[in-house]
Simulated assay, not measured.
Amino acid sequence: MQSTRIPYKTDDYGNPIYARVSWSTATQSPRPIALIYHGGGLMVGSSEMIPKPQTEYRCSKGFLVVAPNYRLVPQVSGRQAFADAVYAYDWTTTDLPKLLQAEHSLEIDSAQIVAMGHSSGGTLALHIASCRSLKAATAFYPSLFLADPTTSMHRPTTAPPFGLMPDFTPTKEDSASIEPAGLQVSEAPLAIPGSIPQPRNKWQMHVIKHGQWPQTAQPDGDYAAMDPMTRVSARWPPVMIVQGEMDDVPGGGLELAERAEREMRAAGVREVVLEVVPGERHMFDLSPTVGTVDTGPKWEAVVRGLEWLKRHVSVKYD
């Protein structure tokens, strides 16, 4: 597998925002595109979060894999992060094929494009399904129904890890780290278990713990801007949701995934599949062992989600 980082846009200060682009050198052209959005609640994360086994699997099936970063809250709103996700799609289907043809002699079939993502990245994949042309979308444990004020994202939580974290009031130095001058953050690591969390991680945990995520991510209260389920229609491509049975992270969970399945079917989405992973919680697939030494039920569920995408491109690759 070959991989490179390519700037696809700049922030408001002119700093580059990168997408990681990967492909197999053994695959014949033309390649379909798999667009993958990382999770992190629009507050943390980067393309480096995308599990390597999943990228390798997609590449081995002939896909060009594009994992874009996007600007993170609070320097931008969730609406702007969603706009970056759409911009990444547009760049991937227009500018990137020409760039790869010129620099690597790769032929890309930009009409054959699928999207997937993890957590809030799954929500971004569904957003792309609502406003751009896709062959299929797979959302791993997405955040759903943000525009519904009765859902868990709008309430305080005791669920780990958020409920276990002490309250956090940023110092002046912390605030400068969270919102650095002259840079809109588009890459921020997740908190690593056993290590001291960075100010941004502490801040994110505090916001979610106290049910303040919606108003922090979208201060104007237009939560529908971040809720693709308000735009579900028969024009959507086939959709699969891969959902851990025991997921209790605010904004997600099996109950909301089942509701999404019902509403997509009622709206006329032509194919909808809910893949429930027994006994698993949020981010069950992000451990580096899943897909490497652990190829059991968790990896098998991931593969079903990835194969769903492969089945919906019109040209089959092996």
Results as ranks from 00 to 15, higher is better:
residue 158 T to F: 02
residue 242 V to P: 07
residue 247 D to L: 05
residue 283 M to E: 14
residue 206 H to S: 07
residue 182 G to L: 04
residue 222 D to R: 13
residue 262 R to Y: 05
residue 193 P to Y: 11
residue 230 T to A: 12
residue 249 V to A: 13
residue 235 R to H: 14
residue 150 T to R: 12
residue 226 M to T: 06
residue 252 G to T: 11
residue 176 A to E: 15
residue 237 P to L: 00
residue 144 L to D: 03
residue 267 A to V: 08
residue 257 A to G: 07
residue 157 T to Q: 02
residue 266 A to W: 02
residue 248 D to W: 06
residue 194 G to E: 00
residue 220 D to K: 04
residue 188 A to M: 13
residue 277 V to W: 04
residue 237 P to F: 00
residue 155 R to E: 10
residue 203 W to D: 01
residue 150 T to F: 08
residue 210 H to R: 07
residue 155 R to I: 06
residue 192 I to S: 14
residue 163 G to T: 04
residue 195 S to T: 14
residue 232 V to P: 11
residue 192 I to P: 07
residue 264 M to Y: 02
residue 211 G to M: 05
residue 148 D to V: 07
residue 191 A to Q: 07
residue 151 T to L: 01
residue 150 T to V: 08
residue 282 H to Y: 12
residue 241 I to L: 15
residue 184 Q to G: 06
residue 209 K to A: 12
residue 276 V to N: 00
residue 208 I to E: 06
residue 193 P to M: 11
residue 208 I to R: 05
residue 225 A to N: 04
residue 190 L to R: 12
residue 197 P to T: 10
residue 216 T to F: 06
residue 216 T to K: 07
residue 165 M to G: 03
residue 147 A to H: 08
residue 149 P to T: 15
residue 161 P to H: 00
residue 196 I to Q: 11
residue 148 D to Q: 09
residue 222 D to M: 10
residue 201 N to H: 01
residue 277 V to K: 01
residue 254 L to F: 03
residue 174 D to S: 09
residue 234 A to I: 00
residue 284 F to R: 03
residue 237 P to C: 15
residue 166 P to T: 05
residue 159 A to Q: 12
residue 231 R to G: 06
residue 145 F to Y: 14
residue 226 M to C: 08
residue 196 I to S: 10
residue 233 S to W: 06
residue 203 W to C: 00
residue 279 G to K: 09
residue 220 D to S: 07
residue 199 P to G: 02
residue 218 Q to L: 02
residue 227 D to R: 04
residue 206 H to A: 06
residue 233 S to C: 09
residue 148 D to W: 10
residue 192 I to D: 11
residue 264 M to V: 09
residue 205 M to A: 15
residue 263 E to R: 10
residue 256 L to T: 00
residue 193 P to E: 12
residue 277 V to S: 05
residue 154 H to E: 02
residue 151 T to A: 01
residue 255 E to A: 15
residue 246 M to D: 14
residue 205 M to P: 04
residue 263 E to D: 13
residue 160 P to W: 01
residue 247 D to C: 08
residue 179 E to A: 15
residue 266 A to F: 03
residue 200 R to T: 10
residue 219 P to K: 00
residue 213 W to S: 05
residue 196 I to W: 01
residue 224 A to Q: 14
residue 209 K to D: 06
residue 285 D to P: 03
residue 254 L to N: 00
residue 194 G to K: 02
residue 144 L to F: 05
residue 209 K to S: 07
residue 213 W to A: 09
residue 191 A to R: 03
residue 190 L to G: 08
